[in-house]
């Protein structure tokens, strides 16, 4: 049996995720493109995990981090956190505005028209 290398497995994941991305995102209407962009900003904040992994993992065979490396990682953590927290919050704020307003508490039956149903 041939076992795929880590590289080819990762490449397969990349290609599949890319296709999923194209399919999902091509269904999003123009109206929601700004929230889409700020939402994807939050999603690429996943880079935070990279910084978290590196910040204290002896198992990758890292030597002790010197002050410079620590500074780099803290910067990456800060930016990643800003991306995730800020991105999701601002997207939430925006999307709330797209809701039909008359009764902010109870959505559902009250909302008129709209072509989209839950799939």
């Amino acid at each position: 049996m041939i076992l795929a290398s880590v590289l080819t497995t990762n490449l397969a994941i990349l290609v599949l995720a890319g296709f999923v991305g194209f399919i999902v995102i091509s269904k999003i209407p123009n109206t929601l493109h700004t929230p889409l962009m700020s939402g994807t900003n939050a999603i690429h904040g996943v880079v935070l995990l990279g910084a978290l992994l590196l910040i204290g993992l002896p198992e990758i065979g890292f030597p002790k981090l010197d002050a410079f490396s620590q500074a780099l990682l803290v910067i990456a953590v800060i930016f990643g956190t800003i991306n995730i927290v800020g991105g999701f919050l601002v997207t939430d704020r925006m999307l709330e505005m797209f809701k039909t307003k008359p009764k902010p508490q109870e959505q559902g039956e009250q909302e008129p028209a709209g072509k989209d149903g839950k799939a």
Binding site: V6, L7, N10, I13, L14, A17, G18, F19, V20, G21, F22, V24, I25, S26, H33, L36, M37, T40, I43, H44, V46, V47, L49, G50, L53, L54, I60
Partner: peptide, 30 residues
């Protein structure tokens, strides 16, 4: 998105690759 996906290869993190690819696809499509 692409930079994040490539970082995923660098540190071997599936999640970074997937999320990076999603963002890359979104940005490219737009």
């Amino acid at each position: 998105g692409l930079a994040v996906a490539v970082t995923g290869f660098e540190i071997n993190s599936t999640l970074l690759i997937i999320c990076g690819a999603l963002v890359g696809a979104s940005g490219t499509l737009l």
